[in-house]
Amino acid sequence: MLGKTAGGLYWMFRYLERSENTARLIEAGQRLSLTRPSGEDEWSSVLETAAMHWGYQAAYGADYTREQVIDWMLRDKDNPSSVLNLICMARNNAKTVRTALTREVWEGVNECYMVLCNKLARKVAERDLPEVLQMIRQRTAYVRGATHGTMLRNDFYDFSRIGTFVERADNTARILDVKYYVLLPSAMSVGSSLDNVQWQTILRSVSAEGGFQISYGQDPRPREIAQFLILDKRMPRSLSFCTDKIRDNLGYLMADYGTRLKCHDMADKLALRTMQRSIDEVLDDGLHQFIQEYLKSVAELGNQIEVDYRFYA
């Protein structure tokens, strides 16, 4: 396959995953601001988690109003990671790699684009927000489903999956990076209702309230949340799960092409570091430092994949 096609698929799936995650972050932020009226400053933390705060500050300064932040995240043309821009880029990529996609996947992306362009053409009124966010999640999930159900399990698929999980790993790690302090052991002793709300928000940001409850019971404890989001192999958005998937798919490429590359070593190293530790070790060594190192390693791995598989040159 063409290097350009590999890169096009990888980024198309990153953009789709990112737009879905952005919708989830907005949802969690909105919920928080509704249940806690003084939650205005929560929006700056939502922006930071989505890595959109620098651009926002450049445009609006430190004025974090709900309406303005949501508009920035959903549809502002000046925000390269706004959902609208992401969906446009995903569709442009889909056009570029059209020959690598099944008809179902292409039509899924195209319809996602048509529907969301229409919904995001104007500012979204608060009462329409739930519907729009749901639509973003449904449309992107549809593409993922069509990919799963119709695409050959070949290198096209591998690059699509690698893009999905690199983005997802990055997203979960960012949530932890911004919220790590509420998960520290010291926070447990506080045990205030404030922390409870924060814990719920974290779980909501990764659509995992139900999954957590099944696995750990009704009362979220910070140590268990950290365990769940970082190490739990059943949890499809945990760092461990995403790392495994990246490594698996890189492994299929290695077997398929018969060549081991630098990115394979990096993926192995990353997997070792995330998985062969207990949550206590992670907490003891410093949660924040762990997360920051993880974010850096995933970014480096992403760059190496682009080089090793000749996305651009």
């Binding site: 063409l2 290097g3 350009k4 290198d155 060549t259 598989y309 040159a313």
Partner: peptide, 15 residues
């Protein structure tokens, strides 16, 4: 995606 290499027109693939 293309380049002349060794007297042939060649495309840049993942391999």
């Amino acid at each position: 995606d293309l380049r002349v290499v060794d007297g042939r027109v060649q495309m840049r693939t993942t391999e």
